[in-house]
Amino acid sequence: MATLLDVNGLNKYFSGRRKMFGKSASVHVTRNVSFTLDGGETLGIVGETGAGKSTVGRQVLRLIEPDSGSVRFHGDEVLSMKAPALRSFRQRAQMIFQDPFSSLDPHLTIRDAVAEPLTIHRKMSRDERDERVLDVLQRVGLRQDQLQKYPKEFSGGQLQRIAIARALITDPDFIVCDEPVAALDVSIQAQVLNLLVDLQNERGMSYLFISHDLSLVRFLAHRVAVMYKGEIVELATSDEIFENPQHPYTKSLISAIPQLRRRNSSRQVDAMSDESDSEPVLGEDLVADKEFSC
């Protein structure tokens, strides 16, 4: 497949985080981060809290400006884009945040929140926007009668579906998923992950999937990048990372998760409905001896 994203040598410093001899010192948050992402591929980024995972995702989308490095999207340099080109890039590259409630304006109805990117990026009539919003919301499992409700009226799983709908509304090629299921219970996690897989299969989208949970990354990612203290210390296919890790830090991460076994190659997790309080059934292809945790 053709390369969609080419990231080379990303560096980011933050100052004032600690003091050395009474003076503020710069902290290297990301150090020489490089990777590629193909069309229709998922690259998982894993590591402990503070490893720089989320900072990488935000730098790729220019939500945080890198201090140095290169980000090429379809061959175009993102970091040098001016307003018109950057606006076009933001239609094609979106982000799903960890906390869906904080990423949605509590004063906007779901209809207006999901339609907002269309209002900014597309010239469409109100009827056309409403039709597009309804289509996307139904695709993620919500109903027409929920369009005029506010974020506080939805469960965590429903809010994450709304956040996914908002990311999908402009038909992106690429989505950064920053801990998109970390705040959800296990059964809802499975539903959201299945939705991401289905959408990738249908639309050929690429994901940068950031997570501390290696069990989820193994299920979703084609390749995995392991970050430690701002650097990528190992990058390989998912099977290579989990079956034959090379770096000592990767080995320590793998040893901390429950033993997993696959039954077939289908990337699908069985899940209960939103209303169910029982544990999910994960037996079709991904079986954990314990509850997913890291």
Rank of each mutant, 00 (worst) to 15 (best):
D6N: 13
H74G: 11
G47Q: 05
A256Y: 03
K229I: 09
E48T: 13
L195M: 13
I241C: 10
G57Q: 09
I254N: 07
A115H: 00
A51S: 15
V133L: 09
T49H: 05
F242V: 05
A190E: 00
E116R: 12
S88N: 15
D67P: 14
S211H: 00
D6R: 12
S34R: 09
L4S: 07
P258A: 04
S80D: 13
Q259N: 13
R92K: 14
H107M: 13
A190D: 07
L137D: 07
L159Q: 10
S155K: 06
F14D: 09
S187W: 00
M227P: 08
K123T: 12
D38I: 00
A51T: 07
C294W: 06
F97M: 06
D173K: 12
I257D: 00
P117T: 11
V197Q: 14
R263S: 14
P172C: 12
V226I: 13
R166P: 01
E243M: 08
L184Y: 10
R17E: 14
G204M: 11
Q191T: 04
Q191L: 07
A182L: 00
P66I: 11
Q59A: 10
V136S: 04
L220H: 08
V226K: 07
S293C: 13
E128W: 05
G204A: 14
V186Q: 00
G204S: 14
T119Q: 15
E116W: 12
F89C: 10
V287E: 10
F14H: 11
R263H: 15
G44I: 05
